[in-house]
Design a binder for these strands. Structure first.
Lengths: 205, 205, 205, 205
DNA sequence: ACTTAATCGAGACGGTACGTCAGGTCTTGCC
DNA sequence: GGCAAGACCTGACGTACCGTCTCGATTAAGT
């Protein structure tokens, strides 16, 4: 997270255990209190750590919560279920399961909201949350092309644009369903969504 | 906004001008400061109003911002452009234009985030922001069915589910593109999105 | 303590009771904790008052303690005991009694120390603590002159210088005895001091 | 300052230079910042020393400042000027010159103030600051008695009491003039003070 | 015109959290 | 073992907003 590669690393080294304790305490506080009532003093107390230790490592609430929530998305992966539709359904369900957890619900949109006025924060979110998810889209498409379910790309730039589009559609739909409409993105919904995504409104009707 | 229809309403009536001034001041503060740095004391000062006046009408920051942002969405409408695709492109572009404004960018996701732990707030958002948008989906589908672009519904419950799905996909995609990916939802993107929405990944490829 | 004579005094007026409660709490905390361990947060709590209320009225610990300690000196007066020697002994004993109280012991020299680098603070000390005491010197001298114990002044400037000198000698001796030598300025000591002051080392020997 | 005479003193011996550097840095910081803004971390940095080194030798800020200020008083001596009055004037001027230095002004009364609640600190002040000064009083009296300016003592206990009294009067007056009245104890003032001390108010008038 | 009563501005109030700073301790690795 | 470096826990700092309250002054509707 922070590297001081130059020079000899003098002085007492930072406790590695503190980082983990702080992030776990942050998630715990998110569950109990939600974003707006979460205070850094409380997180420090839960983690058994001084407030100064926390501020030495994170610039503020936003950065801390991004790192705490980002770890939730580490478990996302794209298991091979044999078909494009099945692959999509699988990964969307995983994504929905993460968004169903209260620590993600309250924290994620809050930091996204803050990131609209803080470029460094947006970059941090992109690096640790968004880009890893986007890689799943690329991997899924490659697999579908290998199976012959999708045609190979001709224009690489166009291909990148399409991947971004698909990612926004998939992630956006699940987030909106979960947080705005406040309805569960369960198996039935995911089947319907995947059908529309693959076949379109006209084809799915 | 609030009615005290029972009883006779004696005494000095509330200033109608104050409401408008407060909401305008709220949007102004959202633009300049963003959600997290917006304070009610500052809004009151901008509006030339005492803090008590503000608290007499809104319960807090969340409710105030919902009302201030909701007004931005009042201008959304569904002009008849002759085809389903053109109708979708038109309304999506309008939606994107609203989300491009800084007062919406910073405020909207923040209150959505808060609403994950506050049912009354979620209901307020739904009523004044979400449901009016959802009506546009219904209106668009009816128009497309009248044109023969989409088959008439058979199962009304299934039809409601589909409308919700479409709404989550459309709104979610635009929001995600604009706020998370932080890229503009411009005409080119909207064309690509509409194509995928109507034809699906397979059909659009 | 603070007057806002101009204009109309709008807004909620300051609580008069709070001032008294805060000063009393300050003295209480001085007794229990001493200057260096006294915290404004603790004083606020003892006074049943918010920290902000305290800061609204005093700039900091120094100013607060000056006001709290100054009240102790309000009781100083110069009773007519019939002779210059008896008058001096009487007022010095009173002064010593005040300096024997723990709230004065810990607080007084601390603010004097701070005042060496803070002109406004020195002025505050002078106005509310020192000058009233100095008036007693002038009053005592006038009385002694009326009795014929001291000759009337000829040069008024010289008279002012002498009054200052006497004040520094009297106050300084008692303070030094009490705080530096840490011995009680009891009746015996006061008698000896008065004898030296009136007759000098040579005359007193 | 601290002796570990028992045992064999193994390991690296303490740097003698560090002690001097720390005390000098302390006085420098007192001049620049004053007592209340002086921090041990800053002193350590100025002295080019780690905070641990400092704490290994002094228990805290109070003890450190006492030692740093005490060195200022080492230069006090009682040169023989031929008469009691001249001797007093000489030593009082020296004392006043030390108190005029900012490192003494800010530091001395602060530690005296602290010493009202810390017996060990008071003892340290007495040993390293007060008692050496008091010796000057004894020496001056002996010299005056040898000259026949003062009668020889009859009661040794009474003599000790008188010496203490004189010391409190002299030191107290200079301290009060310098720090409380914040006026210079210059030659003119010292002449007036000495005259009153020797002849008394009545005799000096 | 005269009450009546809720509104308005101003700003003080009790709180809570902020982010920083200093005190004093502990843990490294080098000397 | 001393030492420089710097992380650590603790606790206070002074500030900013919160949402409530207390003022005196308006301001309409009902008399």
């Amino acid at each position: 997270m922070q590297s001081r590669s130059p020079a000899v690393r003098t002085g007492r080294p930072r406790s590695a255990a503190a980082d983990a304790a702080i992030l776990a305490a942050t998630r715990e506080a998110l569950v109990e209190l939600g974003w707006s009532k979460l205070t850094l003093g409380d997180v420090a107390t839960r983690a058994g750590v001084a407030k100064t230790t926390l501020y030495r490592r994170w610039a503020g609430k936003n950065e801390l919560v991004v790192d705490a929530v980002a770890e939730l998305f580490d478990e996302l992966e794209l298991p091979d279920r044999g078909s494009l539709a099945a692959d999509i359904e699988g990964v969307v369900l995983q994504f929905a399961a993460i968004l169903a957890r209260p620590e993600a619900r309250s924290g994620l949109m809050a930091v996204v909201s803050e990131s609209t006025r803080d470029d460094a924060l947006r970059e941090r979110i992109r690096t640790s949350v968004v880009d890893p998810q986007k890689d799943l889209v690329l991997e899924g498409r490659a697999r579908a092309q290998a199976r012959g379910e999708l045609p190979p790309e001709t224009d690489p730039e166009e291909a990148a644009r399409t991947a971004d589009l698909i990612f926004d559609v998939v992630a956006g739909a699940v987030v909106h369903r979960t947080l705005v409409s406040a309805e569960p993105a369960d198996e039935e919904w995911v089947r319907g969504f995947t059908r529309v995504l693959l076949l379109g409104l006209v084809g799915a009707a």
